[in-house]
């Protein structure tokens, strides 16, 4: 009746259909609305920069694994995700060699040096962004207004416009008027490729939560903390802050939904994720309100990444049955 040998392995005998690639593909899908918004506001050059970044990441991963005789894992979509996220953190005006450098740095130095997928203790895209910003600060902060008709291949020669956060901070951009809340919400403002459209990022973020790729814990606590703190510590005294502008601008949505939730560099415990969100929210607010930079989302996430293993260690959930025996 039975001709072949039966497989004898231990339970469970069935597994969910979800795989690493299906999870990563969900992230790519979630990033697509924001990419469409980027193309709309910043033109084809935004798509080109993204394509170059993604390609660099995938090539870097392939090359590293080939040279080191490791299994090639570029079809798990994780390098693609890193590529899109890195591109989203670049202005559409960057010279095209920069995403190449950034992609290789993210994949080889931040991801593979530490053992590959799941082992990197910092978010590769953010670490690469920090590296690029430190090395080429001018190119990395050339913001353009939407619909600027950027040339496709030539590095655009443009005058940097101010981001809403810089205006809020009232430093170099003092005197410029704030964009309307609607513009902020839709993404009709200056900024990096993928950070401006709150609406599109929210759609993507909600998709990730709906698909259970991420939990609500990090994004919600992160955004709420920034909202509360920037409201309390306003420029004109307590409880006068412009929380709405702070929440809607800069890389907060992108950071909270897509960067701080990076699996490898964030805690896995429920409590740890809440600490991660609140911690990143506090650091972001402090940098924005009192620090030297107008924006603090990426540094706050990187700092919390470093603390993540420790947070996991001290937030082990209370196990089921951790109660006194009834007398």
């Amino acid at each position: 009746m039975i001709n072949n040998r039966l497989i004898v392995s231990s339970s469970p005998h069935v597994r969910s259909e979800e795989t690493v690639s299906s999870v990563m593909l969900d992230v790519v899908i979630a990033l697509t609305p924001a990419l469409i918004a980027a193309a709309y506001f910043f033109g084809f050059r935004a798509l080109l920069v993204t394509a170059v970044t993604v390609l660099s990441c995938v090539v870097a991963e392939y090359a590293w694994q080939k040279v080191n005789h490791q299994p090639i894992t570029i079809n798990d979509w994780s390098a693609v995700v890193t590529g899109i996220l890195l591109a989203f953190n670049l202005p559409a005006t960057v010279p095209l060699w920069m995403p190449v450098v950034g992609g290789f740095f993210a994949i080889i130095v931040v991801k593979q040096f530490f053992g590959g997928l799941g082992q990197n203790f910092m978010n590769p895209a953010l670490a690469a962004r920090a590296f690029l910003l430190a090395s080429w600060p001018v190119e990395m902060t050339k913001w353009v207004d939407p619909f600027s008709n950027l040339p496709l291949l030539k590095t655009p020669d443009v005058i940097s416009s101010a981001t809403p956060l810089a205006i809020l901070k009232g430093t170099e951009a003092a005197g410029q008027t704030m964009p309307s809340i609607t513009s902020l919400f839709l993404g009709n403002i200056g900024g990096t490729i993928g950070e401006t459209s709150v609406l599109m990022l929210l759609i993507g973020g909600l998709w990730l939560i709906y698909r259970k790729v991420i939990s609500w814990r990090i994004p919600v606590t992160f955004i709420a903390t920034v909202g509360v703190l920037t409201f309390i510590f306003g420029k004109d005294g307590f409880f006068t802050g412009n929380a709405i502008y702070h929440v809607l601008s800069g890389g907060l949505m992108l950071g909270a939904f897509f960067m701080a939730t990076d699996y490898a560099s964030s805690p896995v415990t429920p409590k740890g994720q809440i600490i991660m969100g609140i911690g990143a929210g506090i650091i972001t607010s402090v940098i924005r309100l009192y620090g030297g930079y107008p924006e603090g989302v990426s540094y706050s996430i990187l700092l919390m990444n470093i603390a993540a293993p420790l947070i996991d260690r001290y937030t082990t959930p209370v196990k089921f049955g951790e109660v006194k025996v009834r007398a």
């Binding site: 597994r15 795989t19 999870v23 994780s78 896995v268 959930p317 089921f320």
Partner: peptide, 21 residues
Amino acid sequence: KPESPCIRCGKCVDACPMNLL
């Protein structure tokens, strides 16, 4: 399906009915 390295997604943590890691 072949076993691949842990990506630290935390899904096992959320699924554990005994609240373990």
